[in-house]
Design a protein around this nucleic acid. Sequence first.
DNA 1: AATCCACAGGAAGATTAGGATA
DNA 2: TATCCTAATCTTCCTGTGGATT
Length: 393
Amino acid sequence: MRPAYTPEILPHREREINSLASVLVSALRGQTPSNILIYGKTGTGKTAVAKYVGKELQRKGDELKKRVHFIYINCEVVDTQYRVLQNIANSFIRDWSERVPFTGWPTDEVYSKLKAEMDKEDGVTIIILDEVDKLSGDDVLYNLSRMNGDLQKARVSIIGISNDLKFTEFLDPRVKSSLGEEAMVFPPYDAVQLQDILRQRAAMAFKDAVLDESVIPMCAGLAAQEHGDARRALDLLRVAAELAERERSKKVADRHVRLAQAKIEVDRVTEVVRTLPTQSKLVLLSTILGEETNKDVNQSGLTTGEVFEIYAELCRKIGLDILTQRRITDLISELDMLGIISARVISKGRYGRTREIALSVNGPSTKEVLAEDELLHEVVHWKPVRRQQQKIV
DNA sequence: AATCCACAGGAAGATTAGGATA
DNA sequence: TATCCTAATCTTCCTGTGGATT
């Protein structure tokens, strides 16, 4: 049930598998397949399909005695030019003493080593770059895409995977044209398709009849509402089962799914808040504190100015530089996009135009997470002093 | 209809951290 | 190891604006 598991059968991705395979089969005839870009939101099976087709191709290649290599790289983990090249090069080198070290070599030496090794091995190499958009600088892509010109015998083809449809807009036009020779878009799953996926996995993971009938449709439905993310659906089912197990329940019921949904959301928020930069944490804390005091006075609608004042006060208390209000505006937008606060622009007529800021998560528990930060520890329970209400003269 | 508040949010430049390169 | 580059962060300066009030 875990996201890392890649199943053997991918329901409702036959079309994608076939079209990807039809581009790549030319590798079996010794030709160079086009480079491909795969787009799709999270949990639409991009990685699974790419890995699956890659493995199949390698298997067929072994049967036909054609050399087909297949390398998977997650660019979120391996995000610099050096490390990408190093990774690819090392996948060709058996002997540990020959391997490219983590650091020390000039980048172009790694590049020529890689070329040498590939030519020695011959055949077609398919490189999957997952999360290409996380790669820093487009040199890597440029170098890899022009590699075919530098190689004597061997050939490479690149499969880039991205969940950002506008990814290529910021790319060097040369890279863009060579990388985007073929583009594929993976559509999100609908609720019915998600049910099939869940059923297939559930059959492997659970004993018969431990799931209430409605559990799978419910997980599928909830995940379908959130852009048809299969990973989300599986998480829901897994967490629901874990919760049921923990309370020694014989069956997994709707109730557990609902609890699971709440737990996943809480975990997500906790994680996001914990990893926020200090300044953003302060802005968030200011919002919480501001909302608390506003509630006392029964006056709603926290404005940018109010949050900024509380923020500035907090900074003074703990001796941190105060950022400008312009910057705080942006930090507020970021928190809004992360979904932990909501900020919408409203007009108060004569009294200006501002954003109305409200917390969209639980205040007290968020404070606890913020309190884990040493710097903030002493101010989490501080109460801002209400300013005088502005008099209308 | 005109005014004017309290910001929103764009443009451009300064600063800085960390990786690339010599 | 020194310095050059790049990307991210932050500031300064700015123009724009919805609608209650005048």
